[in-house]
C-alpha cells in the first residue's frame, strides 16, 4: 500500500466511524473528527442563523422608542435583547468549528454569508411588531424545535436554550395582535394590514419546496436537518390558521382550506419570484440592513481597538509586577 492509498483508507475509516455515530444518534462534539463538508455546512448554517438573530434586531429596534406603553417597551426591549443573546450563543457555537466571530462578520459584510430573508422587509407600523413576534418568530420556532435534535452538540444545545425564549416571543407578538383586534377600527385595520404583508414572507422563511432545495441531501443524511422545508412549513400553517381565526384576523390566501383527507390545510401558490428577487438583493430593506450593520461595525472599531489596547497594557503590567 503506498502513502496515498493509506491516506485514502484512513479517510474512509474516519468517514465510516463518523457516519456510524450519526446513525446511532450520538451527538458530534467539537473535538470529534468530522468530514470537511459537514463542518462547512454547519458553519454556513449556524452563522446564517447567528446573523439572522442580529440583523433581526434592526426592524424591531426601529420601534423601541415609539412603543405605545411602558410595558410594551419593556417587553419589546427584553425580546430584542434575547435575540442579541441568541446571536452571541450561536457565534460561540460556530466558533467551536474553528472560525472566529470577526471572520463570520466579514463574510456577512462581503455577502458570502446570508441572513434570513424575512428581515429584508420593513416594520412599518406597531402592528408589524406583533406580526413579527407572532408569525416570524412562530415560523422560526417550528424550525428551531426541529433543530434541537440536530446532530452537532453545541448547535443542538444552543437551540434548546433558544427555543425556551422564542416561545415567549411568539406569545408577545400574538398578544399585541390580539389587543389590537379588540381595539379601535384603526387598530384592527393596522393589524390586518400587517398580517397581509407578513404572511407570505413568513411562509417563504422555510425555504424553497423540497423538490427545489439545494442543501437538503447531505444535511438530512448527517441529521443536521431533521425535517424537510415543506414539512416544517405545513406544521407552521396548521398551527397558525387557528390562532388567526381566534382573534378575527383573515389569512390573505383565497385558496387556504382544510383538507380532511390529508389532515392539513392546503394553501395557494407561493410567489417564488418574489423570494428569489429578495434573496438576490432586491428586497425593500436589503441595502439598509447591510449598510446599517457595516456602518455600526466601522463606527465601533475605535472602541474595540481601545478595549484591546487596554487589555494588552494591563497584561503587560501584570507580567512586570
Amino acid at each position: 500500500m503506498d502513502v496515498l492509498e493509506k491516506t485514502d483508507s484512513i479517510q474512509a475509516e474516519m468517514l465510516r466511524h463518523f457516519e456510524e455515530k450519526i446513525e446511532r444518534g450520538d451527538a458530534i462534539e467539537p473535538r470529534d473528527k468530522m468530514p470537511d463538508a459537514y463542518r462547512k455546512h454547519l458553519i454556513r448554517q449556524m452563522s446564517q442563523h447567528a446573523h439572522s438573530e442580529v440583523i433581526g434586531m434592526q426592524p424591531e429596534g426601529n420601534w423601541i422608542t415609539r412603543a405605545p406603553s411602558l410595558r410594551a417597551k419593556q417587553i419589546l426591549l427584553a425580546k430584542i435583547q434575547d435575540e442579541g443573546g441568541h446571536g452571541l450563543y450561536l457565534y460561540s457555537a460556530a466558533e467551536t468549528l474553528g472560525v472566529s466571530r470577526e471572520e463570520l462578520i466579514s463574510q456577512l459584510h462581503s455577502g458570502k454569508a446570508k441572513y434570513s430573508n424575512i428581515f429584508n422587509y420593513p416594520a412599518l407600523t406597531w402592528a408589524d411588531i406583533g406580526a413579527i413576534g407572532w408569525l416570524v418568530d412562530g415560523a422560526a420556532i417550528v424550525n428551531q424545535v426541529s433543530l434541537q435534535r440536530t446532530s452537532y452538540g453545541p448547535y443542538s444545545r444552543a437551540m434548546v436554550r433558544i427555543c425556551k425564549e422564542e416561545s415567549f416571543h411568539q406569545r408577545q407578538g400574538y398578544e399585541i395582535m390580539a389587543k389590537m383586534m379588540q381595539g379601535t377600527k384603526d387598530q384592527q385595520e393596522m393589524a390586518q394590514d400587517a398580517m397581509n404583508r407578513w404572511w407570505w414572507p413568513s411562509l417563504m422563511m422555510f425555504g424553497p419546496h423540497d423538490s427545489e432545495s439545494p442543501h437538503t441531501g447531505d444535511a438530512v443524511k448527517w441529521k443536521i436537518k431533521r425535517h424537510s422545508n415543506d414539512e416544517l412549513r405545513q406544521k407552521f400553517i396548521d398551527k397558525t390558521v387557528q390562532q388567526a381565526e381566534v382573534i378575527g384576523l383573515t389569512i390573505p390566501d383565497a385558496d387556504l382550506k382544510w383538507n380532511e383527507a390529508k389532515g392539513h390545510y392546503d394553501h395557494g401558490p407561493i410567489d417564488w419570484n418574489e423570494f428569489y428577487r429578495v434573496i438576490s438583493g432586491n428586497g425593500p430593506c436589503n441595502r439598509q440592513r447591510m449598510e446599517h450593520h457595516k456602518r455600526v461595525h466601522a463606527e465601533g472599531a475605535w472602541v474595540r481597538e481601545a478595549a484591546e489596547a487596554y487589555r494588552l497594557r494591563k497584561e503587560k503590567e501584570l507580567l512586570h509586577l
Partner: peptide, 22 residues
Amino acid sequence: LSEWCSNAPLLEEDLALTNFAL
C-alpha cells in the same frame, strides 16, 4: 440608552446598554 439597540460597537455592549435601559 435604548437607542443603542443594534447600534453598539460590539454585541455584548448592545446587550449591556439595553439591559440598563430595561
